[in-house]
């Protein structure tokens, strides 16, 4: 394996277990700057855990993860904070701050970390909300007053508001109607194509995956078992990927019987 020096994100041999539950069992991913990778895989295969390991929110048991050539787990808090500043993350559950209004959520990093004035931050928050199809009338609501899909979109607006270099989206279109989902797909695509961000998205929605991915990788039993250009996902020649893409109950992937 050659370690490409131009990798934005480089993950090698990452293991992570919770007690006896061995979730990640040797994950390797190299991702070039300005590319969009979509990770697919069954529920509970460790996709969210993988993102949290890259973000330093979970510490892998083994292996190394580096961003722009800097290891994230073997570094001081200052460097770590710098690396964290490059990321924007949409959490699977939204993870909105329920003590703050919608716009304060979206503007959080601008106000509290980047020192932008509240007035300017509010303007940028409302612009970011518009990008996820939410009007200015939602800005002053509390997260608890929103529907699940709206919360997801606010989380997305929050992830992109500070224009980070690296974007992680954990199931960005889950719970959205097909039209809004398409708006979100285009938005994610444009973050990468127009703004040059590097993105990793997790999704079960193959239409969304095809639209936002340069490349697709499939995780199964704790490893990346296939990776290829998005257009190849329908004729991957890999029985696991074929079964996942066609959504068939029969195939090599074990389906728990009731």
């Amino acid at each position: 394996m050659t370690m490409s020096t131009s990798s934005k994100i480089s993950i090698s041999g990452v293991y992570k277990a919770f007690g006896a539950n061995k979730v990640l069992r040797g994950v390797d991913i190299e991702l070039q700057a300005g590319k969009s990778l979509v990770v697919i895989g069954g529920s509970g295969t460790g996709k969210s855990v993988l993102l949290k390991c890259i973000l330093g929110l979970l510490t892998p048991d083994e292996g190394s993860i580096s961003v722009d050539g800097q290891s994230i787990h073997k570094t001081g808090p200052r460097t770590r904070q710098n690396i964290m500043g490059k990321f924007g993350m949409l959490f699977q559950g939204g993870a909105l701050f329920d003590s703050l209004s919608v716009w304060e959520n979206v503007a959080f990093r601008l106000i509290y970390a980047d020192g932008v004035s509240r007035r300017a931050a509010r303007k940028r928050a409302i612009a970011a909300l518009a990008k996820v199809n939410l009007g200015p009338e939602t800005a002053n609501l509390g997260p608890a007053e929103l529907s699940g899909g709206m919360q997801k979109r606010v989380g997305l607006a929050r992830a992109i508001a500070a224009r980070p270099e690296i974007l992680f989206f954990d199931e960005p279109t889950t719970g959205l109607d097909p039209i809004t989902a398409d708006v979100i797909n285009n938005l994610i695509r444009s973050q990468v194509t127009a703004l040059g961000a590097t993105a990793i998205s997790i999704t079960h929605d193959m239409a969304s995956a095809r639209k936002i991915a340069d490349e697709i990788a499939m995780i199964y039993e704790g490893k990346i078992i296939w990776r290829g250009p998005a257009k190849d996902v329908d004729n991957s020649g890999n029985p696991y990927v074929e079964q996942f893409v066609t959504g068939s109950e029969t195939g090599p992937i074990k389906v728990m019987a009731g």
């Binding site: 929110l57 964290m84 701050f97 970390a113």
Partner: peptide, 25 residues
């Protein structure tokens, strides 16, 4: 209760990703 709820709904993780140290905030 408040900080615990923030922990289980990943709001504390979100603070990290928004360049804010939960110990300070």
């Amino acid at each position: 209760a408040e900080i615990g709820a923030m922990r289980v709904t990943e709001q504390i993780d979100a603070l990290h990703t928004l360049s804010t140290d939960p110990f300070r905030f």
